[in-house]
Design a protein around this nucleic acid. Structure first.
Length: 314
DNA sequence: CGTTCAACCTGGGCGC
DNA sequence: TGCGCCCAGGTTGAAC
């Protein structure tokens, strides 16, 4: 589940821990597989204790919690939720599958109140690493991740993907091209951009890339405002254990066989690169005859009422 | 360079 | 009720 909007919601949900001190760290059971550049869980726990949380940032679909203390090089606890990972300051969905537990206390406080930050992960595909500056750069730097989806431009996409023969939907999942887009939002972005997901990147002109980039920024920003998508098994929750709301605004993802809300045609499900792709064959017509040029032939962004509702509490 | 496949894991839903 | 199979938001590495 966690794509950019869900991970950004997690980040915001735990940002209030900045300035607090880690009183204790636990990594129950076989927390993670061995990971490059990161110490084993027991040593991670040891090195986290007594450190202060300096900042909480996001790199694509990862959260990086910066920790530090006097006279010590800064480190980053980099958490990658993958399919089912959740960062919680609330009770976990089940007591099983808690992979990390941090007891944090406000500055100057010796004992209570203790807050708990949990990483809970049902399938256990998520990862936790403690990295130094070099490790952070290797794991999350520009060589690994493209521009963030919230700010990506048409030029960014055209320069990275313009020559590719891959279908544009598969290409949008490439984190080196643009960071943070996953299977749900790739489908929603291309529906908004009115582009067939199978269109080879090569066939898209500069204006089409602008359309895709704008749709990406708008869809992702709206999904952040709505605190992500909670669908299917309903696993995804905000850090304080509430459902996201963007699933109500999905136009195609998970809606195969149902009528398109824009045009009434039947939403189709196909498989690309071993993953489901949903799209509307009428709203997202196949490109005919090479790159489109000229304004008249550019895909128009479909109107999306109530796309961004102001007033969601910060 | 690109695609395909398997692997990493658990659990829900479905057909029989 | 139970079994086996397919599916799921992601990423990585090997094989072709």
């Amino acid at each position: 589940m966690p794509e950019l909007p869900e991970v950004e919601t997690m980040r915001r949900g735990i940002a209030g821990l900045c300035g607090m001190r880690i009183a204790a760290a636990r990594f129950p059971q076989g927390t993670c597989r061995p990971l490059a550049m990161s110490p084993a869980p027991a040593e991670m726990a040891e090195r986290l204790e007594r450190q202060r949380i300096v900042s909480v940032s996001r790199f694509g679909k990862r959260v990086a919690i910066e920790v530090g203390s006097e006279g010590r090089a800064p480190h980053w606890l980099v958490i990658e939720p993958r399919m089912t990972g959740l960062l919680l300051v609330a009770e976990p969905p089940t007591p099983h599958h808690v992979r990390m537990e941090l007891d944090v206390v406000p500055p100057g406080v010796r004992r209570l109140p203790i807050q708990r930050l949990l990483f809970w992960d049902q399938r256990g595909l998520g990862t936790i690493r403690l990295l130094d500056a070099q490790g952070l750069d290797r794991a999350c730097g520009a060589a690994k991740l493209g521009p963030d989806g919230l700010v990506v431009t048409g030029n960014d996409l055209a320069s990275r993907l313009g020559e590719s023969q891959r279908g544009v939907k598969v290409a949008l999942l490439d984190q080196k091209a643009v960071a943070g887009i996953g299977n749900i939002y790739a489908a929603e972005i291309l529906h908004r951009a009115a582009i067939d997901p199978r269109t080879p990147c090569q066939a898209l002109a500069a204006e089409a890339w602008e359309t895709v980039a704008r749709a990406a920024r708008e869809i992702l920003a709206s999904a952040v405002v709505h605190e992500g998508s909670s669908i299917g098994d309903e696993l995804y929750r905000t850090a304080d254990n509430r459902k996201g709301g963007f699933q109500k605004l999905h136009r195609v993802y998970g809606l195969g066989g149902t009528p398109c809300q824009t045009c009434g045609a039947t939403i189709e499900r196909i498989v690309q690169a071993q993953r489901s792709t949903f799209f509307c064959p009428v709203c997202q017509p196949r490109l005919r005859g090479g790159k489109r040029r000229g304004r008249g032939s550019q895909p128009r962004i479909a109107p999306l009422p109530k796309l961004v509702r102001r007033g969601a509490k910060a």
